[in-house]
Design a protein around this nucleic acid. Structure first.
Lengths: 386, 386
DNA sequence: TTGTGCACAAAAACCGGTTTATGAGAGTAA
DNA sequence: TTACTCTCATAAACCGGTTTTTGTGCACAA
């Protein structure tokens, strides 16, 4: 009976979001077209006379006009939102943010995104199918992927048509062709960093050196290669027993049955370390793939009376806040998580803006940070080492 | 010359987001109206015949149709996004996420939001003006505020017309009227928790008890009241000297010049604790307003040879991951940050959905967690206390 | 006087969905 | 036969912006 238009005339535009004034209403009240108002909003001087511009600006200010972002995004086919996706289980040790490395990285990402005038949508899931489903609906301008292995990253790329930057994804050689103007990676020289760390241990007289991690993929595998290289170079033999593998299971009965390694439930991580600590006797040093694991391992050692660094030396990785706060402070491989995240975000936004920076991969360099958890076993330590 | 429509006819709808198929195109290819397709998508059986429904569903599957979220949001005037806003300086100790309490809370929030089918936009700023500016443009369905004092929360409420839940905002009595169906708060019995902690210290023979914090507002002020109450009850006098106040400055020269307290730059926090530790001699125990400060303070003590708990007892607050990982493990007041965040998110989404749960404030109860940093000073300790 | 170009503003198409109003045809009761 | 209801489908309005196209009036050159 009554049509939309009639109603809107009757109620003079009081529909929908009642307290939001629209550009049409403004144009109506000022007796001009929406184009003119829009032009003023976008600072298109030259299209509008100075007087009109001023009049519009004043009015906009008066009514505290805020554009409807959905309408704007629809018209411009963008969103100014960056999707940040972590592929992670809940509770490696609590939730993924509790890992100081992740926390620092997210902080760096958030800041970079914000400073570039974008916004950040954060999404965590272990289920790649779920991730794929959402990724295509979000309509975000770009994607930042973290904790994602080859296959998953490839699948996301196939599904999502806009720019993507991965952090710490190690694309296998056979897939390395996927890097293009729409897909980049920011990583770290994990292998080299670990190589130098283990070389440092060897240089300080260690020969029985364990390698501690919870997996054999991605970043940790790169670190493992560095470890192996350092051992080989020093003529030290490696056996699988030297791999302090801690497999934890999300749910009872899950987890692929690896040939070796300690198993534990995700919420009983410390128990897993306690068991690993039983094997410590044969070693003088253990390289740990993350600081947090290093700290938990140190606690397990200390609980059985093994002192660090007197009885056992520990090398960590990341140099996160735990490393400097724990006592003895941790000797570790430093990487700047915040910077890494920020860099990835910047690369992504450059891609979104079409300012493409030729580089398809950026690889940062780690640094050793010597603190108090490595003992010098040499009989005549050379000067300058400690 | 050539109008839009002509072009679209010529190119058969190949404009805009080239790889996105629209509902109109689908309707065209199936020879039906968009209404019908839309009805199928929304599961409005009863409106569409079973055969048509099936035919549409099959086709949607085939072309892997994904609705344009901006168009949908515009039409429905919603976004399915929750805005999570932290008012924080960068780098209290790194960035705000590095605080395990915040990290755990964000984790809880993210999970709750995701499980309810919403998405999370994260925004951090110390600048309330900037926050206000964005808050009104985002068009998110609801807002979760954290680290926000009275005034700021009120200003946000004034600017943003949809549901808001604050976490740990202590609305002063004169403003308590702001709680309504659009505004709630989730908090903790901070005063009571601290009261019990300090009472525990007193019960273990401590009389000279310091209170350590970096501010005198919000949550920390509530804790301070609990501390004072416990002292008073035990007839212990308090002087401002007992307040171990650590004021840190974001930029040189900023910071209101308080009457007392140690000052330091934000990136020299440990130095600040070192100075605070100089005053430790007069005390047998210090209650710290957060675990992270407790750990840093303990490190400062240990650096000057003061042993915990032998020479000095420490009580923390939060029971975050540092508390259990540091050695000696920290005696502290436990609160479940993840749960707190999740609860706030759930409350908010209930409000968005119109399922209002009468309660305008939810206050959780803390618990003491006794570990190894408090010494029993009594000459004849009663049985059952450690 | 007649173009021609320019500054400015308005009209209308468009983004891609959702939703209301309308209608056609079949079945049924009066 | 008429009227009414029901089912299924379509047309068209609508959300609130942006952007292209068109139009008008005026100055200036030919």
């Amino acid at each position: 009976m009554i049509k939309y238009k009639d109603i809107s005339v009757l109620e003079s535009g009081q529909k929908g979001n009642a307290d939001m004034i629209t550009i049409k209403e403004i144009a109506g009240k000022l007796g001009m077209s929406t184009t003119t108002v829009s032009n003023v909003i976008h600072g298109k001087t030259g299209e509008v006379s100075p007087e009109t511009t001023l009049r519009v600006q004043k009015f906009l200010e008066e009514v505290d006009y805020v554009p409807n972002i959905n309408a704007r995004n629809l018209a411009q086919n963008r969103s100014k939102i960056i999707g940040v996706v972590l592929k992670a289980w809940e509770g490696k040790y609590g939730n993924i943010f509790t890992d100081p490395f992740v926390a620092e990285m997210i902080g760096g990402i958030e800041k970079a995104i914000r400073e570039k005038g974008y916004f950040m949508m954060l999404y965590i899931s272990d289920d790649i199918a779920e991730i794929l489903k959402h990724v295509s609906t979000w309509n975000v301008d770009g994607l930042l992927l973290f904790c994602m292995l080859d296959d998953d990253a490839l699948r996301v790329k196939k599904k999502y048509r806009k720019p993507i930057v991965c952090i710490d994804t190690y694309i296998a050689k056979e897939n390395s062709g996927i890097y293009d103007s729409r897909f980049k990676n920011v990583g770290l020289e994990d292998e080299q960093g670990t190589y130098e760390a283990v070389k440092y241990l060897i240089g300080h007289g260690h020969r029985k050196i364990g390698f501690l991690s919870d997996n054999r993929e991605g970043v940790d595998y790169a670190r493992f290669r560095g470890y192996r290289r350092a051992l080989e170079e020093a003529g030290i033999e490696y056996s699988d027993r030297d791999f302090f593998l801690l497999r934890y299971e999300m749910k009872k009965g899950s987890g692929n049955s690896g040939a070796f390694g300690i198993r534990c439930m995700q919420d009983e991580l410390q128990e897993g370390f306690d068991k690993l600590a039983e094997r410590a006797g044969d070693y003088t040093a253990v390289f740990c793939c993350s600081d947090i694991y290093a700290v938990m391992f140190m606690n397990a050692l200390s609980d059985r009376g093994i002192r660090v660094p007197d009885d056992m030396s520990i090398f960590g990785f990341d140099d996160n806040s735990y490393a400097s706060l724990c006592r003895p402070a941790l000797t570790t491989v430093h990487q700047d998580a915040g910077y890494k995240g920020a860099l990835a975000a910047k690369l992504l936004i450059d891609m979104i803006r079409g300012e493409d920076s030729s580089k398809s991969q950026v690889t940062l360099k780690p640094e050793l940070v010597i603190r108090g958890t490595v003992r010098d076993l040499r009989e005549n330590p050379q000067a300058g080492n400690g």
